[in-house]
């Protein structure tokens, strides 16, 4: 199980899963605390219309136009939600639901109407990703990790996600203090000269970039699950923001590894030769971790102050 075949077939998906999970969980912490957890849900739904539009414009299914299309769609969705909220004075949740379902419906419709039968985009792929198919053909064993020729043939999703994760870490480190203050006390943040609205928008854009990079590899289910579940579980473990971020990274990593292993090898333990969906299993494990945190997390209860406030 740990030999050359593992490096070739299982190592890249596991690493990609971990990278995607952490890249989503990191901004998820702030979204959770700002009560914007569902922005991740909305963004991952509008990725589909984004890639369809990119395909209709460019006519190719190259990775970069698709990612740009998806990122643009995510930003368009966020702007539309703001417009609906302001112009129609509609409640935020309803505005969000209205915009993302409409954009998703438009995406499905364009997909069905345009001649995309020759290329591989479909709704299920966008929802589920293709984690299992991200294999490393040229790997011959662990020593291939040191072989530049073999390394060059790693799935491109891996390097894209690594870059995305690095950019996310840089963004959060640079603006850590500002994000922290504006998340917990927006009025105070404004008073000391932080552009809270600009920072909020930057956070949403960072979220969108993470969602787009991750969805290509792992599908939108994992994306939504990782935006919400690890940070939510981490929130029940601690009252300190830096500890919470640390816990969420741990939970995201455990979900990715355990989910992939259970999906790939678990059915074999029951005598079934087939694997189940790794994306689905990773989301399920994340849910189980959250469930355990809800039952046993040391800080699961509301403090008396916030209970009085709520």
């Amino acid at each position: 199980m740990m030999g050359a075949e593992f490096v070739q077939l299982s190592l890249p998906p596991i690493v990609i899963g971990i990278l995607a999970a952490i890249a989503c969980a990191l901004p998820g912490n702030f979204l959770l605390l700002r009560r914007q957890a569902l922005i991740g849900d909305a963004i991952s739904h509008v990725v589909l219309p984004g890639i369809v539009a990119a395909f209709l414009v460019t006519g190719t299914i190259a990775a970069w136009p698709m990612m740009i299309g998806a990122a643009v769609a995510a930003i368009v969705a966020v702007v539309l939600i703001e417009i609906v909220k302001r112009l129609g004075r509609v409640e935020p949740g309803a505005a969000m639901g209205l915009v993302f379902t409409t954009l998703f419906a438009a995406g499905v419709l364009f997909l069905e109407r345009s001649d995309t039968s020759s290329v591989h985009i479909d709704v299920e792929h966008a929802l589920l990703g293709n984690l299992e198919s991200l294999i490393w053909f040229d790997a011959e064993g662990w020593h291939s990790l040191l072989d530049p020729v073999a390394l060059a043939t790693l799935p491109p999703q891996l390097s894209r996600l690594a870059i995305t994760l690095a950019a996310m870490i840089v963004f959060l480190t640079l603006f850590w203090k500002e994000l922290k203050i504006s998340t917990f006390d927006a009025a105070f943040a404004g008073a000391i000269g932080i552009h809270t609205r600009l920072l909020g928008f930057a956070l949403v854009v960072a979220t969108a970039i993470a969602a787009v990079a991750a969805f290509d590899a792992v599908g939108s289910i994992i994306v939504i699950a990782m935006f919400v579940c690890p940070p939510a579980a981490a929130r029940l473990m601690t009252n300190r923001l830096d500890h919470q971020v640390g816990w969420s990274v741990i939970f995201a990593t455990i979900s990715a590894i355990l989910g992939y292993v259970l999906a790939g090898y678990g059915p074999g333990w029951f005598g079934s030769p087939y694997a189940v969906s790794a994306a689905g299993m990773i989301a399920t494990i994340a849910g189980i971790i959250l469930g355990l945190a809800c039952l046993f997390g040391p800080q699961r209860k509301r403090t008396s102050q916030s209970a009085a406030g709520a």
């Binding site: 959770l32 009560r35 914007q36 957890a37 569902l38 991740g40 849900d41 949740g93 939504i224 699950a225 935006f227 919400v228 579940c229 939510a232 929130r235 029940l236 849910g287 959250l290 809800c294 997390g297 800080q299 699961r300 209860k301 509301r302 403090t303 916030s306």
Partner: peptide, 11 residues
Amino acid sequence: TRLSEDAAIGA
């Protein structure tokens, strides 16, 4: 728990 409804929905 202390989680808000939107987090519960997303999870």
